[in-house]
Design a protein around this nucleic acid. Structure first.
Lengths: 228, 228
DNA sequence: GGATGTGAACGACTTCACAGCG
DNA sequence: CGCTGTGAAGTCGTTCACATCC
């Protein structure tokens, strides 16, 4: 009842593409789009690796998952590669995104051009504060949370940005799920339990800062952790 | 000349603590600090694992690196564990931080309480725009970039938040390094080359969004990447 | 009994090295 | 010749299982 079967991966789709490779696809995309606009028609695995700071072998292995679009002795055609990568990542189309929690971070995200550029459009914003509801931010009316299901459905939103305080994060995540949202990018500094059927990516700025402190400490050779 | 020696790790410090474990230390810290304040004196690996979404075995393996502070049959003393984790991460003290690039994101970061709570204090802000220099944000005067070395030295800053546009990111990173900064948290959406002696952590919001789109696409079973 | 610490098995990811093609 | 695609080897990280101790 507890061992025997390897459990997990019971029958569903085979894991064609490794998670690690997908994470790098996004990184490849930036220099590639830049080079493509600059008129470069072809790139080698070495150039790409150099640009994102990994080995050429790694690049080739990753790109294998896209099918064989490299030409020996030549390299990869820039444009095809960009298209294939975007397709693999699922950003060969536009995603409608809602934002919940209109604080400082939310305002910064609303003004951030990078999302739109990659095909993410923020189509509605929500907050629970009655004082904010009805106001506008960046041309969008702030809705009350009760309107989540209706607005999500009306705008065809599939992704959500979660910029609410810790206390309400889990509840709002579930409200988003109930409203039909399929993926959440969470900025609240806690470990959200993803509602069933909803994918989750979390960004905790304090955690990143702590990692940085750790790295600096390591480099300083100060306290590489004694066995004690 | 090219094989034989394993190269790398030539002689310097042995890699006591794995990078992956250190990344989780930050995650452990949040529920732990919460529980500690709530008066809980002891926690088990199972509880911690549950809170951050990993197995108990993984938790125990990680905590091994801190020395043996668990008691069989009882668990780990909450307070000691918090202190040991903070010490391991290098946040058992305050870090002085400078911020470069006063845009929307910068303002959001300046108002974010999470940094201060974990021992990161933003002590100065910089921008290259003459129109901004001399103004104040969140009680801090905006300095010109030319004052980086002087202010960094005067305030004893060791870390930097980089929220400048792509074009100037690399140059500013090098200026930070030259001014004596030891670690950079970069928000510009490009692959920075870390100056020698400087640690780097990058946060690219568009990349996170793309990962989310990828996960949702996977879960939808839509296009799990065909071999073609 | 309940929970830790840990070697050993396992699996995932990366690097190597080289055959093969344009 | 340069560069891709890929098995094989190697490294790193996670999970298992169990001896051990309170």
């Amino acid at each position: 009842m507890s061992k025997a079967e390897p459990t997990q991966t019971p029958s569903a789709g085979e894991p064609r593409l490794s998670r690690a490779s997908a994470a790098r696809f996004s990184l490849y995309l930036r220099p590639l789009e830049h080079w493509h606009q600059a008129g470069l028609r072809t790139v080698s695995s070495g150039q790409l690796g150099e640009a994102v700071g990994i080995t050429d072998a790694q690049v080739r292995k990753d790109l294998t998952y896209l099918g064989s679009l490299g030409h020996p002795g030549v390299g990869y055609p820039t444009e095809e590669l960009v298209l294939a990568l975007r397709r693999a990542l699922g950003i060969d189309r536009t995603w409608a995104v809602v934002l919940v929690g209109v604080g400082n971070l939310a305002r910064a995200l609303l003004r951030y051009r990078g999302f739109e550029q990659q095909g993410f459009r923020i189509v509605a914003v929500f907050d629970s504060d009655p004082g904010k509801i009805g106001q506008e931010v960046e041309g969008l009316e702030i809705h009350g949370l009760d309107r989540l299901p209706a607005v999500v459905a009306a705008r065809g939103a599939e992704l959500g940005l979660l910029t609410v305080p810790i206390e309400s994060a889990q509840a709002v995540a579930e409200a988003l799920a109930a409203a039909g949202i399929r993926g959440i990018l969470n900025f609240a500094p806690l470990c959200l339990k993803p509602p069933p059927g909803v994918s989750l990516v979390s960004v905790d700025l304090a955690v990143q800062m702590e990692q940085l402190a750790f790295l600096v400490q390591l480099e300083n050779g100060e306290r590489p952790l004694t066995t004690r």
